[in-house]
Design a protein around this nucleic acid. Structure first.
Length: 161
DNA sequence: GCCAACGTTGGC
DNA sequence: GCCAACGTTGGC
């Protein structure tokens, strides 16, 4: 199966690329959206590329790269009473929610802000650049992934602003 | 903190 | 199955 590529959002208050660099690897529990769930459960494979996106940040943008380290498996936080991600309706025999693990790959020297993504040729069709795109797990093309990776690695004197 | 856009819920 | 109300996301 060819390598696929994804963009995964997280608020810096919850987790950052620095955290991932420190941890090396982390589990991505807590996704409670069916479309995102389907991507994690049905399509993500070990080795897939991930654009790590900081949402609700100033600015928001892609802060680094990761890879899928474990393909979709049931999100057991949905069964933990009292847990933030507890979901009464999730059946253990037929789990509603799935998670994956991701591994650190690279931290960009500077964030690639959403503004930059919006203004970069070749990224016009990226979901994240479109207004009202709330999906927290999005597929991206290899071409888009490569463009963003190149932007992230580019060192600009005085910073990438 | 505001608020537009979106996904989900629930009454009918 | 429609759709208004509601809660959440996320850019600004």
């Amino acid at each position: 199966m060819p390598r696929r590529y994804w963009l995964m959002k997280v608020e810096p208050e919850a987790y950052t690329i620095e955290d991932l660099e420190r941890d090396g690897r982390t589990s991505w529990e807590g996704v409670r959206n069916y479309q995102a769930r389907n991507f994690m459960r049905d399509q993500m494979q070990v080795g897939d590329g991930v654009l790590f996106y900081a949402s609700n940040a100033s600015p928001s943008g892609v802060t680094g790269l990761a890879t899928i380290a474990r393909a979709g498996y049931p999100d057991r936080t949905a069964w933990t009473k009292g847990h933030t991600y507890f979901d009464e309706g999730s059946d253990k025999a037929n789990p509603t929610w799935y998670m994956v693990d991701i591994a650190f790959e690279e931290r960009f020297p500077e964030i690639v802000p959403l503004e930059t993504l919006k203004g970069t040729k070749g990224l016009e069709n990226m979901m994240v650049t479109k207004k009202g795109s709330r999906l927290s797990v999005q597929p991206v093309t290899k071409a888009e992934y490569d463009i963003v990776a190149r932007l992230g690695r580019k060192r600009v004197p005085g910073g990438n602003r």
